[in-house]
């Protein structure tokens, strides 16, 4: 039964992707891309990857759709057509078909779907599954591997988010921001939207904190929680106007918070070096936390990740929607 649903979804997914690429109105294409992301979430949930599906629902379907719309809102949603340049399109099509053909030839050599003894599923992942709970007392294996066994990887990924945030600030920075009066940005203001956003936003933030803290026992963790926290801030910025959103969290404060997130991560990892441990080896904290040392260290590290990701998502949205000037937006 579940397999039948999975097969249906897998057939539906390329069709939706094709529609998203084929539509000639950019706004509709972005919305269809959001629907595509949600379908992908269902596929991954069916394959047992709940954490990945959670991340995709928050990031792929939620935040990246908002980013696309923020850009299209300031520019154009129309696609201009030139006289068709058939030769280059033909070359691209032939190249892509060749690429796909060669890869499809290799499919028959891959291990069977769902084979527990394939090379991917043997090896180190077996160790992770069988020993993670004894080592760290955290039931969610994904969190364990993310924040403990492969911690350096995650630290650098967090740094990538910080660097992307700084890069966007630099690309869209204006030397002298234009002084626009804030009165006309408040013109399209609706009481209903403002009140319900103000009512929901604290609950979104609370849920974000819950996802960060409860990531040890259920799907979730620093990345998902950070994205949800950022979404709450984006909702406030959308409904209350840019000026009050900037009062909430200004640009210098945003950059400092994002950097502090990475610093928490790296600093917590660097302390064991003083006590003759390895970088990011949390077991030296056992003198403080006892047997829960690695579990508590993971929580602290995830808080750092959540801070960086929250500021990253919020800062990217603010820059994109206001064209870098941070003066007015949606």
């Amino acid at each position: 039964m579940l397999i039948a649903i999975e097969v249906g979804l897998l057939i539906l997914v390329p069709c939706v992707a094709f529609v998203a690429l084929w539509l000639r109105d950019l706004m509709s294409a972005v919305i269809v891309l959001g629907a595509y992301s949600f379908l992908m979430c269902l596929v991954w949930t069916g394959m047992g990857a709940v954490d990945v599906a959670f991340t995709e629902a928050a990031v792929g379907a939620g935040v990246s759709t908002v980013f696309f719309i923020a850009v299209l809102f300031n520019t154009t949603r129309n696609i201009t057509f030139n006289p068709l340049d058939v030769s280059s399109k033909l070359v691209a099509l032939v190249a892509c078909l060749g690429f796909g053909y060669v890869l499809l030839q290799g499919v028959s050599d891959l291990p069977d779907w769902g084979d527990p003894y394939s090379p991917v599923n043997a090896g180190v992942s077996t160790y992770y599954i069988e020993n993670a709970y004894a080592d760290t007392h955290v039931p969610n294996l994904v969190t364990t591997v993310l924040a403990d066994y492969r911690s350096v990887d995650t630290m650098l990924e967090t740094t990538v988010v910080l660097i992307a945030l700084l890069g966007i600030f630099m690309i869209l920075k204006k030397d002298r921001p234009a002084q626009s009066d804030s009165s006309d940005t408040q013109a399209h203001d609706s009481l209903i939207i403002r009140l319900s956003a103000r009512f929901i936003a604290p609950f979104i933030q609370l849920f974000g904190l819950y996802v960060v803290a409860h990531g040890h026992h259920s799907p979730g963790g620093g990345f998902q929680g950070g994205v949800i926290l950022g979404t709450g801030l984006i909702l406030m910025a959308m409904s209350m106007g840019m000026a009050s959103a900037k009062r909430l969290l200004s640009i210098p404060r945003m950059i400092i918070l994002a950097a502090v997130g990475v610093l928490i991560y790296a600093g917590w990892g660097a302390v064991p070096l003083v006590y003759n441990g390895y970088f990011l080896d949390y077991s030296v904290w056992e003198s403080v936390f006892g047997s829960m040392a690695r579990s508590h260290s993971m929580l602290i590290v995830e808080i750092g990740v959540a801070l960086t990701v929250m500021c990253g998502m919020y800062g990217i949205y603010m820059s994109l929607v206001s064209d870098g000037g941070m003066q007015e937006g949606l």
């Binding site: 609706s190 209903i192 939207i193 319900s196 956003a197 009512f199 929901i200």
Partner: peptide, 8 residues
């Protein structure tokens, strides 16, 4: 709360 607000 959310769905009617979005429609609005």
């Amino acid at each position: 709360i959310g769905s009617p607000t979005a429609t609005h």
